[in-house]
Nucleic acid binder design. Sequence first.
DNA 1: GTCGTTTTTGAGTGATCGTCCAAAAATTGC
DNA 2: GCAATTTTTGGACGATCACTCAAAAACGAC
Lengths: 198, 198
Amino acid sequence: MGRARAFEEREALDAAMLVFWHQGYRATSMKDLEDATELKPGSLYHAFGNKRALFLRVIDHYIERVITARVHHYLECDGPPLEELREFITSAFAHVSKATPSPACLLLNTAVELGMEDAEVHSRVATGMRLVERGMQRQIQRARALGQIAECVDPRAAARGLAVAFQGILVASRMTSRRASLMELTDQAMHQLGLSPG
Amino acid sequence: MGRARAFEEREALDAAMLVFWHQGYRATSMKDLEDATELKPGSLYHAFGNKRALFLRVIDHYIERVITARVHHYLECDGPPLEELREFITSAFAHVSKATPSPACLLLNTAVELGMEDAEVHSRVATGMRLVERGMQRQIQRARALGQIAECVDPRAAARGLAVAFQGILVASRMTSRRASLMELTDQAMHQLGLSPG
DNA sequence: GTCGTTTTTGAGTGATCGTCCAAAAATTGC
DNA sequence: GCAATTTTTGGACGATCACTCAAAAACGAC
């Protein structure tokens, strides 16, 4: 009963996600979100509550549609583990060019912008980052089982090191639009962590 | 001639720096800056122009008073290079506690928040980060000359890897107030990069 | 059709944003 | 003391901020 929704919640979240991702939480106005979702303010507030609540939904959406999807595609597959690891990282700046500077990762951007000042935001960001590190560890363990890396490499420590380096590379992706540089950083980090064949 | 300044420009920059550092560019209002500097809006605008121009001055101030000072203290000294390197990194979150979450680094925060959207901001941030990486490389070269690390370690690559890891650790410092965890990340990163004695 | 319910609409809320300006105050040169 | 110059003051500007709400519109039940 009642009037039917004229929009798909998922499409609205997709649109809002892109805006928050590219601009950050505070730099994004409700007007920006109205334009992106093509919804009037009343509809937005009726459907999501307020800006912060929408942002929380967007983070969940991002974790599901971007993080989990990429982790599943690159880090829970049966392909060559070291190559998949590498492609997981480079997929984060695959479309970077001079015309399209990197928005990096919503989780990183949010971690830096809001830190621990909002507990619910913080816990979601931490959850998303944990998914990444655990996925990395899984592929590293596979690589070791397959004898592609030295036995002295501790998968847990290497995963943590790679996750840290990944954040650093994402930061670098906000500072340069030269994809080749980011590729180099990626290869070098993996090499230094013992995550290269040889 | 004319009325004398009633405030020290450097003190105003110090105060403004702390606000931008802790809150970020967009989250900081002119009201915040007026309160922190104890200056009326007219004085602020008369002395610095506008918010963006003040921010540019603040970045320069930060590079001079924080980055260059720390680089000089830890990375251009004659102490044991590996220990100095380690202390350079940990000095970035020395005062972290539950009551005092880490503001991390103004350069990192700015890189993530503004990316390349403002050319003058971008070039300052890049300059500051270059100072850090070059300082790291200097100590790594010293460590190698002193035989404290393996000869196969390439100082340039190691410095780049450590700079990337440093950014990642700074991101982590925005997500946790447990200083011990950040110390562990630091030690582990240096170890993985071949920057530990043995 | 009418009623009850939900969604959409779009103008409107007070607050805060960055910025500006005219007047007052403080200094130097004469 | 007076004129010239600079800084300080504090209120005011229009724009935009996140957000609200009453009315209209669109549905299902009957």
